[in-house]
Design a protein around this nucleic acid. Structure first.
Lengths: 160, 160
DNA sequence: CTTGACCTTCCTATCGTGGGAAGCCCCACC
DNA sequence: GGTGGGGCTTCCCACGATAGGAAGGTCAAG
């Protein structure tokens, strides 16, 4: 099986196949005399495993762990579960963060009449301080919007 | 005001200040004789605007649009609203995608006893095909889990 | 033997951010 | 008037995971 067939049957692009090999997620494929990579059915199974793990949003590093556990008959399911649970926690955090953004923006959009007039609460908000309080340190308007605070502060932007 | 002070009062790092200038999100700052960048209070306000827009997850390109609209007295609020609404739609899509992943993984983790034994439904799922049906083409188990299909297929991974 | 599809490696880009090196500048302190 | 430390400059590299493309070798069918 060459790389094209392995790609087609595993759902992993040839680009990614070579990349995964380069970062040692999968072992170096053996080669034909001409230098073509050769894949076995077992290799393709591993690739499908990886593909599904990626579909669940797992990072390459976690997938490395999972593949290792998968191939280890002495593994404990607790180890597998921990990897999954950590990822769920990260997904939850991300979902919370995005939801806070979404809600804020949706509320602002709802408050915007959206016609020919220039006046716009969205711009006003961006201009003024993400729902007041940032500027003067004293909240002067309506403090009954707890969700507006969530997206501020330490937002590790490059983490996702 | 030099770049350090502008950074401190706007919440945008000096790295990002120079980067934003390089991609023409903000105009080239004027310079002292020694080549130091100079920022005005107006510049800092723009930077705060940008910072808040980033906090809401808006892309640099959308922020470019918004800054343009913000500084255009003839703008129509409809244009601003459209940018916001598009971003909300993307956030919604992303949230849906992440939630599907989360739910699947959480269910699998729930089904995993997580002890010393090697047997694990998480690995079984990754191995077997994201909740069966992929392998044989015929669903043989429990089809009442509509959420398990959502994360598959065309997932533009690099879009986020 | 040619043609076209496939393979190889290597470089580039994405997106937004941070880290760091090498070198110049400025101010305060002695 | 020096000097030291912190700030500024530019430039390069890294991340994570993926795609695109160029230049060249290979294979199989016609």
């Amino acid at each position: 099986m060459n790389i094209g067939q392995a790609s087609a049957t595993s759902g992993v692009s040839t680009k990614m196949l070579r990349y995964y090999e380069s970062i040692d997620l999968i072992p170096q494929a053996s080669r034909t005399e001409a230098g073509y990579r050769i894949y076995s059915v077992k290799d393709v199974n591993t690739l499908r495993f990886i593909r599904r793990a990626r579909d669940l949003g797992l990072s390459i590093n976690r997938i490395k762990l999972l593949v290792g556990l998968w191939q280890d008959r002495e593994r404990s399911s607790a180890d597998v579960k921990r990897v999954a649970t950590e990822h769920v926690a990260e997904l939850d955090a991300k979902i919370l963060e995005l939801t806070a953004m979404r809600d804020t923006l949706q509320d602002l959009a709802d408050a915007c009449h959206g016609d020919h007039r220039p006046d716009c609460p969205i711009l006003h908000d961006l201009e003024g301080g993400g729902r007041l309080s940032t500027q003067a340190g004293v909240v002067t308007k309506d403090a009954s919007h707890p969700k507006y605070g969530t997206a501020h502060g330490a937002i590790p932007r490059h983490e996702a």
